[in-house]
Design a protein around this nucleic acid. Structure first.
Lengths: 139, 139
DNA sequence: CTGTGTGCAAACACTTTGCAGGTGT
DNA sequence: ACACCTGCAAAGTGTTTGCACACAG
């Protein structure tokens, strides 16, 4: 189920403003990762481009969104899930980008296996992007 | 050991020109992933910025380089290794980006484990970027 | 000689910054 | 009331395209 944007914003210590509610709702509706450009289109320029950049930045900082890597270099964002709260995050899931529909989704159920690094390397964070054909396009 | 740029270019069906030799040599010397900007700096603007973009593009197309993801969205490139030839590629190794020195290296010896995707997802390619502290900086 | 690569100029796309005015709490 | 958010303008950065000339094979 989907939490009402105003409430979720409040939970993350963010003020409820028009643009924030709209951007958050866009993520909730999409269900997949969005870039700044995607959001601008979705909201059909209701809000200034700059505002969206700043909104994304504050969402990232507050822990409402996490970054999703892309093979084209365009950074995308996705909603953090239940295991994530303002401070504790849980992001070891796999991201899947479909080469047909272009959508990048979080596969919450698929986790990044533990990787053994060579001596003296310290791991802090990891990102796994798998590309291929998604369920919807594979028919 | 390092192959002479002219010979390697020829092996991949590319003409030997000044910029291509210089760019390829830059990758050989660096030993880690470079972005367009890194190359421009390394070659201290000996060549036009546009030429470098086009050189990278042709290297990618011919299979001499492969893309390396970055958490900032700036795409980097790294030399393909021995297992790679014009047609057959082998890129299931891990990329490691050091948060201190900023270098992204290919950990050729660390492979991406097999991931089991949900029903009906077809995997074509995968990219694993691990961030942390590298051997050199961890002292 | 021929087709491909290069340099320059310009266009295009993406992101950030400064500032004045508006808004949530 | 106050701090924070927004919109606009502008600058900064990264990447692509068109065209004339140069060069590798």
């Amino acid at each position: 189920m989907t939490i009402k944007p105003e409430i979720q914003l409040d939970q993350f210590g963010l003020r409820s403003t028009g643009s924030r509610i709209a951007v958050l709702a866009a993520f909730q509706n999409a269900g997949y990762a969005l870039s700044q450009g995607d959001i601008e289109q979705t909201l059909s320029s209701q809000f200034d481009r700059v505002t969206i950049y700043r909104t994304l930045k504050s969402f990232l900082a507050s822990g409402l969104l996490h970054k999703v890597l892309d093979d084209q270099g365009s950074i995308k964002y996705a909603l953090c899930q239940d295991m994530c709260h303002q401070d504790t995050h849980q992001h070891d899931h796999v991201h899947f980008k479909c080469t047909q529909c272009g959508q990048t989704t979080c596969l919450e159920t698929v986790h990044i296996p533990q990787i053994i690094l060579p001596e003296n390397f310290i791991k802090q964070e990891s990102n796994l992007l798998i590309q291929g054909v998604c369920r919807g396009c594979n028919s």
